[in-house]
Design a protein around this nucleic acid. Structure first.
Lengths: 345, 345
DNA sequence: TCAAAATTTGAAATCGCTTTGAATGGCTTT
DNA sequence: AAAGCCATTCAAAGCGATTTCAAATTTTGA
């Protein structure tokens, strides 16, 4: 009683006086079915709201119709991830592919999660994000033979499908620009050590500095997750140095908020006493153009990346060779009020 | 070739020289299997990494082993939702239940998404969030006989399982506190009209004001999604009024950031010229205690709510009557530096 | 010691779909 | 008019698990 009895293929077939075979074929667009019957079937299916039972369909076809996303801990399910997710989702929805998201607390749990996904065949592919320089998860997925697309890059033995933004170039240009403005002590608030993107950013930063014969002061480089609080503390500590940094490169908009507070608290003015260029992943609810002062940024929509990665997933599932699936996106440098000439003296 | 051939129950059974029946029973803890065999089976399954094929299991049992979350548009997949999601996920992971998240662009699409979930039987239950006062989605889910738990409250004909925070009381206390401090023109930056939580907050606000014989000035009440930019514009406009508001009630931490900027841009000081109490959903990357000045808040962890809702879902799936699943969580009022006495005359 | 009961195992049906291989009937073709 | 072809349709065999019902084995009881 009360059990929600959805309509089955069998019911629909009986209703139409046809065999399940024909109805199935009609709905799936096979050629060997009469045009008139096909219309009749489609109409009835639509009218009666028939949709194949997902589990049965998956069992019969061997396709899971879902991609997996495993998110580690609180820090990964932050604003970046939710933007990314919604980019992925917008494309997946159009393809009738589900997103299976799991959360895990540790690296070990994450590996276990992939093993489970593989063994129980819940997904056709997964999306891997924030890779380390030589990512163990990527190797595991390779072993498990689960197709995946990487958001970022990593260096393992095999070719891997990936999409990344050009972090190195972004930071090189941002740093160069600050150098052009006369800044010499430029602080870098980077992501956690070990992540590929953080390494790439540091390379860009170093390249720009050494191109002018400057050396990197380790006291001006910080590595951490992108939260306002940690950024605040780091920036605060850096601003206490003498000579103090005159410019900051902030790893995210959250970081920028923290740096901004530290600057204010030190009694300094952003855009004149201290400059800042922040990386902007384009959050709809936090607009660099509407800050005060407006924020100079290196900009790249993480949401668009998500959408594109979803497309790439479909391509590799359709058989495109992994070695052909590489995209390196350029990053815009948008100059606004927060970056100005270095103060005299 | 290359097809990833996961181990099946049949393989495992053959490997052990047992029937599928016995192996299945052993693994699922049925009583009628010899303790020695059970151990042997468990060991082999563990060693060989056997996990039942999810689709087959679902088809056979009729349970989907998944809960659905349909997120509408960009604004809903914001920081609030990702915190909430990670709360839900942490519990679901422990129960081996998947989270199926879909994104949709419009209300119509959202309804269609639920119909699809129902017809294809992809989920055992769904979680519904940000309800309107009389929520059409809730009615639909009722019709479709999909069990659900509501994050928030709504008023439809049937009893509904829900968990909500006491927004009315939170705003009444916050408003009263500001009144105690001598504020008379208090602005409310509320959520979008039509949402139950926004209505509840407004009721709390009104109650506190009318208790002191004050009336509500519509020019001091704004309704919108919680982004820093919109909050900035609204606060800016309100601060241009004369007499200007001396205090703000901000609907979220994002809103607070926007209001803060508007206050600064008007050349005013937060905590002395203008006070603010913001609602804090407790984001790990945006801490009210570490702001400058520190932010007074009405606080309630949206992540914890997510976890608890996941538990409630499991309870109703286990048969607990909907009418017994109601939780109204109190909201903490945390006073810090951003709320101070009203400036003199 | 032997029937009856309890324990343990297995064969086969089932879940709802896709897909293979065969069957049906109407038209050409010779 | 018989043979051969198409165009359609269908019956039945999977997919990989659970579960019903029956069978085999062991234990118990008198």
């Amino acid at each position: 009683m009360g059990r929600n009895a959805a309509m089955r293929l069998k019911d629909l077939a009986e209703h139409l006086g046809l065999s399940q075979t024909t109805v199935s074929r009609a709905l799936n667009g096979y050629p060997e079915v009469n045009e008139a019957t096909r219309r009749r079937v489609a109409e009835a299916a639509n009218l009666l709201g028939y949709r194949p039972n997902a589990s049965a369909l998956r069992l019969a076809t061997g396709r899971a119709g879902a991609v997996g996303l495993v998110l580690r801990g609180a820090d990964e399910l932050g604003p970046h991830m939710s933007e990314f997710l919604s980019g992925v989702g917008s494309y997946m929805a159009s393809q009738e592919i589900d997103m299976l998201v799991s959360t895990v607390a540790s690296h070990q749990e994450e590996l276990a999660a992939y093993r489970r996904l593989a063994a129980s065949q819940k997904v056709d592919a997964v999306i891997l994000h924030s890779p380390t320089i030589s990512d163990e998860r990527a190797e595991l997925l390779m072993d498990l033979k689960i197709p995946f697309v990487l958001h970022g890059r990593t260096n393992i033995g095999h070719p891997v499908a990936w999409l990344d933004i050009d972090n190195t170039s972004a930071l090189e240009r941002a740093t160069s620009h600050l150098l052009d403005l006369g800044h010499r002590r430029i602080a870098l608030l980077n992501g956690v050590k070990g992540r590929t993107f953080a390494q790439h950013r540091e390379i860009g930063y170093r390249t720009a500095l050494t191109a002018r014969g400057l050396t990197v002061d380790p006291a001006l480089v910080g590595n951490s997750v992108f939260t306002d609080e940690i950024a605040f503390r780091m920036a605060q500590a850096m601003l206490e140095q003498r000579p103090r940094p005159t410019a900051f490169l902030a790893g995210s908009m959250m970081t920028a908020l923290g740096v901004f507070r530290a600057i204010r608290q030190a009694g300094l003015e952003l855009g004149s006493d201290v400059s800042m260029i922040a990386h902007d992943d384009v959050f709809p609810y936090l607009n660099a153009d509407n800050m005060y002062p407006t924020m100079s940024t290196t900009r790249s929509s993480i949401r668009q990346a998500g959408t594109r990665i979803a497309e790439l997933i479909m391509q590799i599932l359709a058989g495109k060779p992994l070695a052909d699936v590489h995209e390196l996106w350029p990053v815009e440098l948008v100059l606004r009020e927060s970056s100005g000439p270095a103060p005299k003296g």
